[in-house]
């Protein structure tokens, strides 16, 4: 049993989830691969979205994977950092916007 929750080597074993459920894994990976194909959005734009989401959900595997993929698709460091700031802004904004709820409750309670 490994002594840490995350091991970089596990990222390469992602496909192994099929071992405990082939059918659902196949469906997931087929869909996953289609999601990242060029469409109305380019695969580079999709990688940058994925990079931002990776930071929002704080998944180390995803951050590793989509930093590599963004670079391979020609994204610059500036573009990647802007994507991370978008994630940060949404996360921060999501907390702050609840300040309105706090204010509503406070105003109701206070004279």
């Amino acid at each position: 049993m490994q002594k840490t929750y995350y091991d970089p080597a596990d990222l390469k074993k992602f496909g192994d989830i099929a071992e405990y459920g082939q059918d659902l894994a196949d469906k997931f990976f087929n869909w996953y691969n289609d999601v990242f194909k060029d469409g109305a959005l380019s695969s580079r734009e999709k990688c940058l979205i994925a990079l931002a989401v990776s930071h929002a959900i704080q998944c180390p595997y995803c951050i590793d994977a989509y930093t590599s993929d963004s670079i391979k698709r020609g994204a610059s460091e500036e573009q990647m950092m802007e994507a991370v700031h978008v994630a940060g802004a949404i996360r921060g904004g999501a907390s702050l916007v609840h300040g309105v709820q706090m204010m509503n409750k406070a105003k109701k309670m206070l004279m």
């Binding site: 380019s42 580079r44 590599s68 670079i71 391979k72 698709r73 020609g74």
Partner: peptide, 11 residues
């Protein structure tokens, strides 16, 4: 760096 090039036409 240590990565493969992106698609030539895109670059």
């Amino acid at each position: 760096g240590a990565f493969l090039p992106a698609e030539q036409s895109l670059l």
